[in-house]
Amino acid sequence: MTVIPLSAYVALSAVLFATGLIGVLIRRNFIIVLMAVEIMLNAANINLVAFSHYLESMTGQIVALFVIAIAGGEAAVGLAIIIVVFRGKISTNVDEINLLKW
C-alpha cells in the first residue's frame, strides 16, 4: 500500500484555501461567501490534522476539533445575520447591502 505523502495533503489544503479566499472575494451572495469562509476553515483543518499525523503530535487534531466547534458557532451567527438582513431587504446579494460608503 502506498503512503500518501504530506505534500499531497498540504497541496489539497492550499487549493481549498485558495478556493475559499477567491470565493469570498468574487462571489456576491452572502450565503456563498459564508460557505467560502467555511472552506477556508476546513482547509486549515486538513493542514492541522495532516501535520499532526506526520509530526506525531496530538495538538493539531485537538485544534482541529476546536475549529470545527467554532465553525459551527460562526455559521449560526452568520445565518442569523443573513435572516435579519433578508427580512428587511428580500435579498442576499452583497452588492445591495450598500447604505454605508465612504
Binding site: 452572502f30 469562509v37 476553515l41 486549515a44 451567527v77 445575520i81 438582513v85 454605508l100
Partner: peptide, 25 residues
C-alpha cells in the same frame, strides 16, 4: 448592514489567521 459587513470581513480574517496558525504548527 454593519453587522453583515463585520461578519463577512471578520470571519474572513479569522480564516486567514487560522490558516497561518496551521502552517506555523
Amino acid at each position: 448592514e454593519a453587522s453583515a459587513k463585520y461578519f463577512v470581513l471578520g470571519s474572513f480574517s479569522s480564516g486567514i489567521l487560522l490558516y497561518g496558525i496551521s502552517l506555523l504548527f
